[in-house]
Design a protein around this nucleic acid. Structure first.
Lengths: 210, 210
DNA sequence: GCCGCACTAGGGCGGATGTACTAGGTCATG
DNA sequence: CATGACCTAGTACATCCGCCCTAGTGCGGC
């Protein structure tokens, strides 16, 4: 194949340059860089349909579970590999479910990253999960992705420490209804208290409520 | 000055190599690398008293607030710069209070990192705080560092979602006592519910209870 | 159309939470 | 030695939480 077109997106310049250099050493490719959603948009003007998108899971202007579907839809011919230091298997599951071609942890050795990129370019789906499973205490798949939009909304308010009554006022519904959502999301997440749910959601990088 | 001796410690190989390359381009120095506490020990056999230690705040085998004092004591002549993607100002405060010579966020541009390293080598204390202050909703300084050991211990259990009664059983004290600790730490953290405290502590990267 | 699901609303109940108060012990610091 | 901090233990009280139950609406799929 000829010269490839890669875009590397990460908001940590040193890590990004490490990746770019790594790729430059091994692939015959034009490599573009972006550190924010705005810069990614710019690069997509240059390279409308890159061969590979190496994407940090979180960077300014980007929420994976919110923006990945759009991105996936916009770049149907592009191999998307998410790169993250997140070690929450449920979040990784949710990301893989969005149809990306691969997931690599930032703690992976360079050789493993190269191998993963090669495999993805050849059409494989690759998952490099973190070796040490810190989240072995939550065997459930998907977690936050399993919640309904309303439940996720309520969960965000729980993380902000609001009471059911406050959440009810905020959402313009009855406290009884909030209670239903809370009970449901607790059951879905497999925890017994709102505090557990808050910790779990915060670890998974839930966004703060408006 | 002659050839310097640097040790770069970070468990993300790509980021670490980015740093090493960055340093190699700008300084006349022997650069050693480590990705774990064990590897750091090995490198300290080679270079017993390096001129500069670039230290990721969290990596396998290392807890900053636990291990930084020891490290600082062992390497009195070494300039220590902590590098982290943590954006919690209270944690940064706590780290600076351990007597390190500098703090840099991983999202800093390379040029800023070089400048900071140069300044630290010349004897300055440097702090590159994250530009976008995500924790602007907690104006209090230090936060977790303000808590007593017992309060922090209780807070860890709160993050695990345990009830006061469970925490009491775990710590071998009365539930009434646990309640006192909870009330006190809530007041200190400036929040009204244990759930808020859990979110705050989790964002600050509190460790899980044993 | 009927089924399943999400969202809405409510009653009742046992237990958990958080605050205010008092009060005893240890330990370091001045 | 006195002061203050931290940890301990308890009572009383109001509130909140989370579960149980029923029940209505709307929406998309088989």
């Amino acid at each position: 194949m000829g010269t490839l077109s890669f875009i590397v997106v990460d908001d940590h310049p040193v890590f990004r340059e490490g990746l770019v250099r790594l790729i430059g050493d091994r692939f015959e490719a034009d490599v573009f860089e972006a550190g924010t959603m705005a810069e990614l948009e710019q690069q997509l003007q240059q390279a409308a349909s890159p061969d590979l998108l190496l994407l940090d899971v979180v960077f300014p202007g980007f929420e994976p579970l919110r923006d990945l579907p759009t991105l996936r839809h916009r770049l149907p011919m592009t191999a998307i590999i998410t790169v993250s230091m997140v070690e929450d298997h449920s979040l990784i599951d949710a990301i893989m479910a969005e149809g990306v071609n691969g997931f690599i942890t930032k703690s992976s050795p360079p050789e493993q990253m190269i191998t993963a990129i090669e495999q993805v370019i050849e059409g494989d789906i690759v998952e490099c999960r973190p070796a040490l499973d810190l989240s072995s205490d939550n065997p459930q798949p998907n977690q936050l992705a399993l919640l309904s939009p309303r439940q996720r909304e309520v969960l965000e308010h729980i993380c902000a420490g609001r009471s059911n009554k406050e959440i009810a006022r905020e959402l313009g519904v009855s406290p009884y209804t909030v209670r239903i959502h809370v009970s449901a999301l607790l059951r879905t997440l497999g925890v017994r208290t709102r505090t557990s749910a808050a910790t779990l959601a915060t670890k998974s990088g839930i966004k703060a409520p408006s």
